[in-house]
Nucleic acid binder design. Structure first.
Length: 266
DNA sequence: GCTGCATGATGAA
DNA sequence: TCATCCTGCAGCA
């Protein structure tokens, strides 16, 4: 589930649940035993998300750095449903627990590394002061397909495989279009849409891109599991706007989906 | 029960 | 570009 919206939502939920409290940390599965031991008893001071990277600050020089990767999850369980198994890190409370499974990265780092990680990311549409300028500049100079560029975290941080298909659908751009062929205004518009969609994703805690108009008046939050997206994984199904079958092909090593009519090749 | 895939990133080739 | 890592679960026998 992890694109940028997931991580920012986690930062928010973990902040509400755990900031200013003493952590009760353990590593049931054992792979983070020493880290959990270091965190145990520390007070969580702040949480922070940058792109798909999550930072839990426990004091001025101790930060837990988590990247969920493709299959990682960080979930909140009621105490009664709290299960062990593959849990890399658990924060236990009286009534609930946060359980981290399958993360790509989970380790303790110090402030300089936090800065390095954030510095090498492209602008994150969900961070307050981020500006699209760098993204627009890089796009203007890139020979890469826009479908590939949107996945490059050094160019724009937080977009994943679902959002890249959906953003290009909404922009009416064929995913194989070289980024530098796109007008700056078009790229800026992609950014604006990304801000909008990621924010909605944080609020709903799920990816929804279909607009009200295309959902026949149904509120996006009420859309069923099969009508929240325009293109992603809809191979052969009719486009929600023009009924043309959705196409797919690999770009940057992963499948992308588009509507051949709404997003014609140029 | 087993296989393969998944909203990701990396290091080797 | 490809294999690899991490886990869970849909789809299949």
């Amino acid at each position: 589930m992890p694109e940028g919206h997931t991580i920012h939502r986690l930062a928010r939920d973990l902040r509400r649940d755990l900031v200013d409290t003493e952590l009760e940390a353990s590593s049931p599965q054992g792979r983070f035993a020493s880290g959990a031991k270091s965190l145990d008893g520390q007070v969580l001071t702040a949480t922070e998300a940058a792109g798909k990277h999550l930072f839990l600050h426990a004091g001025p020089n101790l930060t837990l750095y988590i990247h969920l990767g493709l299959i990682g999850k960080f979930r909140r369980f009621e105490a009664s449903t709290n299960r062990g198994d593959a849990v890399r890190l658990r924060f236990e409370r009286e009534d609930f627990a946060w359980s981290l499974t399958g993360p790509h990265t989970c380790r303790l780092i110090e402030p300089p590394e936090v800065e390095e990680i954030i510095a090498r990311l492209g602008p994150d549409p969900l961070r307050r002061r981020s500006s699209p300028d760098q993204f627009i500049d890089k796009a203007a100079k890139s020979n890469k397909a826009i479908g590939a560029l949107l996945l490059d975290q050094n160019v724009i941080a937080g977009i994943g495989n679902v959002y890249r298909s959906e953003l290009l659908f909404l922009a009416g751009i064929h995913p194989a279009t070289p980024a530098k062929n796109l007008d700056g205004g078009v790229v800026r518009k992609i950014w604006d849409t990304t801000v909008e969609l990621l924010r909605l994703g944080v609020r709903l805690d799920r990816i929804v891109t279909v607009t009200r108009a295309d959902a026949n008046g149904t509120k996006p939050g009420r859309l069923g599991p099969d009508n929240r997206l325009y293109a992603y994984k809809r191979t052969g199904e009719p486009c929600r706007r023009c009924d043309t079958p959705i196409a797919t092909a690999p770009i940057a090593g992963r499948s992308i989906w588009w509507c051949p009519r709404c997003q014609p090749a140029r």
